[in-house]
Amino acid sequence: AVCQRCQARFSPAERIVNSNGELYHEHCFVCAQCFRPFPEGLFYEFEGRKYCEHDFQML
């Protein structure tokens, strides 16, 4: 399997985020606008991209 964002493979010891069947490295699972991790894992999706609450409100 490969990361949805960076397309790199996962190492066996690595923590992986699964979002609706899409797999991400922990450091790749970030807001599409500000590139920060999601507070408490909370995000909003718009047109296939994931956003933090602040950036989602700015759309």
Rank of each mutant, 00 (worst) to 15 (best):
P12G: 11
F46N: 07
Q33G: 08
C28D: 05
E40Y: 07
A8E: 15
V17T: 11
I16S: 11
C28W: 00
C31H: 03
A13N: 15
V17H: 12
G21A: 11
S19L: 08
A13T: 13
P39C: 12
A1L: 08
N20V: 14
Q7R: 08
L42S: 10
L42F: 05
E40M: 07
Y51M: 14
C3K: 00
S11G: 12
D55K: 00
L23W: 08
F46P: 00
V30L: 11
A8Q: 15
P37N: 05
R49P: 00
A1W: 04
Y44G: 05
K50E: 05
P39S: 09
P37T: 08
Q4K: 12
N20M: 08
F46Q: 05
E53F: 10
E40L: 10
C6R: 02
N18K: 03
E14L: 03
Y44M: 09
G48S: 11
L42G: 09
P37L: 04
P39W: 07
H27P: 06
V30I: 06
C34T: 00
Q33S: 08
H25L: 02
L23F: 10
E47G: 10
H54K: 14
Y44V: 09
E14H: 03
E14S: 11
Q57M: 11
S11L: 11
A32R: 06
E53D: 15
V17S: 08
G48H: 03
P37K: 06
R36M: 11
Y24T: 06
Q7F: 10
A8S: 14
Y24Q: 05
Q57H: 13
L59N: 02
A13E: 14
H25R: 01
K50D: 03
F10S: 03
P37R: 08
C3D: 00
I16P: 09
F56C: 03
G21S: 11
G41R: 10
C6P: 00
Q33E: 13
N20T: 10
P39Y: 04
R36C: 11
F10Q: 01
F46Y: 14
R9I: 11
I16Q: 10
G48N: 14
Y44T: 06
F56V: 12
E14I: 02
Q4Y: 14
Y44D: 06
N18H: 05
M58S: 13
L42D: 11
C34Q: 02
N18S: 04
D55L: 00
F35N: 15
A13M: 06
E26Q: 10
V30P: 02
E26S: 11
A32V: 12
E47Q: 07
S11Q: 10
R49D: 03
E40N: 06
S11K: 11
E14Q: 09
V30Q: 05
L59M: 12
F29H: 13
R15Y: 08
L42I: 14
G41D: 09
A32E: 12
Q4S: 13
V17D: 05
F46R: 05
G48F: 04
S11Y: 07
E53I: 08
F35R: 15
A32N: 12
S19W: 08
C6D: 00
Y51N: 01
V2H: 06
Y51F: 11
Y44H: 13
I16Y: 07
M58I: 09
Y51K: 05
G21I: 00
F43G: 05
V30C: 09
R5Y: 15
G21R: 04
S19P: 05
R36A: 07
C28S: 01
Q57E: 11
H25K: 00
F35H: 15
N20F: 04
I16G: 07
F35M: 11
Q33Y: 09
N18E: 09
Y44E: 10
V30K: 06
S11A: 15
A32T: 12
C6L: 00
E40V: 05
I16L: 11
Q7V: 09
R5I: 14
Y24H: 08
E26G: 04
H54F: 12
E45V: 10
F56L: 10
K50T: 11
S19F: 06
H25E: 01
A8L: 14
E14K: 03
R36V: 04
F29Q: 07
V2Q: 15
C52A: 00
C6E: 00
Q4R: 10
H25A: 00
C52D: 02
R5T: 14
R49N: 03
R5D: 14
H25I: 00
L59G: 15
F29C: 12
R49F: 06
Q4M: 15
R36L: 07
A32W: 08
P37W: 04
A13K: 13
G48P: 02
I16E: 04
Q7D: 02
H54S: 14
L23E: 07
E47P: 01
G48T: 08
E14V: 07
L42N: 12
E26V: 13
G21M: 04
P37A: 07
Q4L: 15
R9P: 13
I16H: 06
N20Q: 09
R5F: 04
I16F: 12
Y51P: 01
L23A: 12
P12N: 09
Y24F: 12
F43H: 07
N20Y: 04
P12I: 13
P12S: 12
F56K: 01
C31D: 02
L42W: 05
G41C: 07
R9Y: 05
G21T: 05
V17W: 03
R9W: 11
S19R: 14
G48A: 07
P12Q: 09
Q7W: 12
N20I: 03
E40K: 11
Q7S: 10
H25P: 01
H25M: 01
C52L: 01
C6I: 00
R9D: 11
F56N: 13
V30T: 10
C3L: 01
P12V: 09
M58E: 13
P39V: 11
K50V: 10
F35Y: 12
R9E: 10
P12Y: 09
C3G: 03
C3M: 01
Q4A: 03
C28R: 01
Q57T: 09
L42M: 13
E53R: 11
C52S: 01
P37C: 07
Q57A: 10
L23K: 12
F43D: 02
Y24R: 06
R49T: 10
R15W: 02
R49V: 09
L23R: 13
D55P: 01
Q4T: 13
E53C: 04
C31N: 02
V17L: 12
C3H: 00
E53H: 14
F35C: 14
E40P: 04
F35D: 15
E40Q: 09
F29N: 07
E26Y: 09
K50S: 06
C31M: 01
C31E: 02
E26L: 04
V2W: 02
N18F: 14
N18I: 06
E22V: 09
G41P: 03
V2T: 12
F56P: 02
C52M: 02
C31V: 00
C3A: 02
G41Q: 14
Q57C: 04
L59E: 04
E47A: 08
F38W: 05
S19V: 07
H54A: 14
E22D: 02
C3F: 00
L59P: 06
A1G: 08
F38M: 06
F46H: 14
F10R: 02
C28N: 00
F46A: 11
Y24A: 05
E14Y: 06
A8N: 11
V17Q: 07
A1S: 12
F43L: 08
R9K: 15
E53Q: 07
H54W: 08
Q7T: 15
F38A: 05
E22W: 05
Q57D: 05
F29D: 04
M58A: 12
K50F: 05
G48E: 10
R15S: 14
Q57G: 14
H54R: 14
Q7K: 01
D55V: 00
Y44L: 06
C31F: 00
C6K: 03
P39K: 10
F56R: 04
D55R: 01
A8V: 14
C31T: 00
G41L: 04
V17E: 06
Q7C: 07
C28E: 02
N20G: 14
N20H: 14
E14M: 03
Q33L: 07
C34K: 00
A1N: 03
S19Q: 10
E53Y: 06
Y51R: 03
E22H: 14
F56H: 08
H27Y: 12
E22C: 13
F56A: 05
M58Q: 12
N18C: 10
Q57Y: 02
E26A: 11
H54N: 15
